[in-house]
Write a protein that binds this DNA or RNA. Sequence first.
DNA 1: TAGTTCACCTGAAAGC
DNA 2: TGCTTTCAGGTGAACT
Length: 263
Amino acid sequence: MAGERIERVELRRPDLRAPFPSDFATRLEGQTVHRVMRRAKYLLAELSSGETLLMHLGMSGSFRIERPNAREVPGDFHYGRGALERHDHVTFDLASGSRVIFNDPRRFGHMALVERGIVDPAVSALGPEPLSRRFDAHVLAGALRGKKTSLKAALSDQAVVAGLGNIYVCEALHAARLSPTRIAGTLVARNGEPRGSLTTLVAAIRQVLQAAIRRQARYRGDDDRFRVYDREGDRCLRHGCPGTIRRIVQGGRSTFYCPVCQK
DNA sequence: TAGTTCACCTGAAAGC
DNA sequence: TGCTTTCAGGTGAACT
């Protein structure tokens, strides 16, 4: 979309997670996308008006791009390319002839237009990017100091660290050998300095995310992609650990961990 | 103020 | 075989 002019926007239903404003499509049409960025799980498209198009894939959302030189499909009435599918909720027709389509079966996705000079509250509240230089053990110690909630809940909080979901919190805690039920504040010394286990956790978060990006992982798929997630009853995969993976519920979400090697 | 619970949604899987 | 129920997730509002 970057560098493209948006010719036409079609909303194929009135809402995703929230209703679209009545002027959502018309405000987008005619605008040029200056650049597209990512912040945590949000995609941000900077527009020629100074507004920002905020997009979130939710659980099941995805984009696909159809290009004008794509092979024609007989009988199809949509630009001679693939027909629109049941859960194609938003289409962006671009001046180049390309079409960007947002598909989201579960409709947990989100789109909003943010006015010039305004930062969406959901974005401004986000914590540091876990793969950025700004994120280290001292920063995480500052966020966890005094927290009486569990490590699982704390790491799932996007204000503590941005972009970790349920699965990768489980994976990072397993990689760091830390129990998801441990009180978050116990990883911080009385003087506010991070304990050694917090440094290990920061490295584990980075390692788990980088590996996931390399695999272009999605939340469902090959079972061998995860070390603990969805492995209840299986042997722990850590070398030499005799433990069995346990499932518990925290904050209404499944947590998977090894009670033997995660302390 | 901090922490917890619930609703939203729908495809897949399990249960009957 | 077909119908019904349960479960999963990210986010924000409501609740404790």
